[in-house]
């Protein structure tokens, strides 16, 4: 990327990059070495990393463009998970009774796609009914105020779900009812493989969208300079609406894709929310590119903790790691003075 070569002219940034790349390089080496010991570590890191990258990417996008630290991001995950379980339930009956392999392959997609759409619409409603209302009245202490607002949204959505749909888990054992696949000596359930493929495709599409399309560029422009973007004829409200919609759609997609692992309950979004926040604090707030890499890094820390220590410590170890990073690099692994959602 040409941007990187130019950044290297700035000594301060070079120092940042070195620290970051050493950390990431070490992580990659450890991951590969451990794969000889237990291949499932590598597989699990890649599978959950893809999902965390999607969650964190959306969270970082909303912070980068709109300066909103979204505490309700987990509830959009929950919404996706719930929608998918409601839509997939009846479809599953149909596909199970049919003999057609094609139907069995396609069966899960309506639920996932509807969940994505519901997430998108929910994001747009949220922007119009909450953030836009506050923006019209006051932009003073915007970051803290919106953080509180999203906390309110989170409480309302969680408890409404509890009142309407109850507290019991709506899960499925698997989306794709096929024999596990064997890749390089690792047996892999089809669901895991599909989740990884979905994540990779969506992340690539998302990256291309931000970098190469007119609308994506407009979003990045708003994240860097709102006045400048307005001068260029970009409608801020339009960009805000799309940003929250996209971010929510990504969260809902993650929730729907992971339904076989995390059954839909009112609080199913809490763990993913926490992970997404680990990632963005680690990567630097509002940096989508960093958040995507950080998603895999945090997934790795979690998988290693679960494998070598115990599941109970999965939250404690990342916190300790983040504290270490903040001590040495206060603005996060990829944080820099330049504000933008994609650029380092």
């Amino acid at each position: 990327m040409t941007a990187a070569t130019n950044l290297r002219q700035v000594p301060l940034l070079r120092r940042y990059l070195t620290f970051t790349w050493i950390t990431l390089g070490l992580a990659a080496v450890i991951l590969v070495l451990s794969a000889f010991n237990s291949p499932s570590l590598l597989v699990n890191t890649l599978v959950s990393g893809g999902m965390w990258a999607m969650m964190a990417g959306g969270l970082a996008l909303v912070f980068g463009v709109m300066n909103i630290p979204n505490f309700a991001h987990g509830e959009l995950f929950m919404l996706g998970s719930l929608t998918a379980s409601l839509v997939y339930g009846p479809i599953r009956e149909l596909t199970l009774s049919s003999k057609s392999d094609v139907l069995k392959w396609l069966g899960p997609f309506p639920g996932i796609l509807v969940a994505c759409a519901v997430g998108f619409v929910a994001g747009i409603i949220l922007e119009g009914s909450v953030f836009r209302q506050l923006r019209k009245r006051s932009r003073e202490s915007w970051v803290m105020n919106t953080f509180l607002l999203t906390a309110g949204v989170s409480v309302i959505m969680q408890n409404t779900d509890m009142l309407v749909f109850g507290n019991f888990p709506r899960g499925i054992s698997r989306y794709w009812d096929f024999k596990p696949i064997n890749i390089l000596g690792v047996t892999l359930a089809v669901d895991r493989l599909m989740v990884f493929v979905i994540a990779m495709v969506v992340i690539a599409a998302f990256a291309l969208f931000l970098q190469k399309t007119r609308t994506g560029r407009a979003m990045r422009a708003v994240s860097m300079d709102e006045t400048g973007a307005q001068m260029a004829g970009i409608s801020l409200n339009g960009v805000y609406r799309l940003t929250l919609g996209l971010s929510s759609a990504l969260a809902a997609l993650a929730g729907a894709s992971l339904l076989w692992l995390l059954p839909a309950t009112p609080t199913v979004g809490q763990a993913p929310l926490l992970v997404a926040w680990y990632v963005v604090i680690l990567a630097g707030l509002g940096n989508v590119q960093g958040a995507i890499i950080g998603g895999f890094l945090v997934a790795m820390i979690q998988q290693f903790t679960a494998y070598y220590v115990s599941l109970d410590w999965v939250d404690v170890v990342p916190t300790a790691f983040i504290i270490l990073v903040l001590l040495f690099k206060p603005s996060g692994l990829f944080g820099s003075e330049v504000k933008g959602v994609w650029e380092q």
């Binding site: 630290p69 953080f147 926040w277 604090i281 300790a320 983040i322 504290i323 903040l326």
Partner: peptide, 25 residues
């Protein structure tokens, strides 16, 4: 001391993390 030299949101989120870690303990 760890977070307050950063933007306020870091302190808010870190306090949340530390709270969760304490609850985990």
């Amino acid at each position: 001391m760890l977070t307050l030299r950063l933007r306020g949101i870091y302190a808010a989120v870190m306090a949340w993390f530390i709270g969760l870690a304490l609850m985990g303990l």
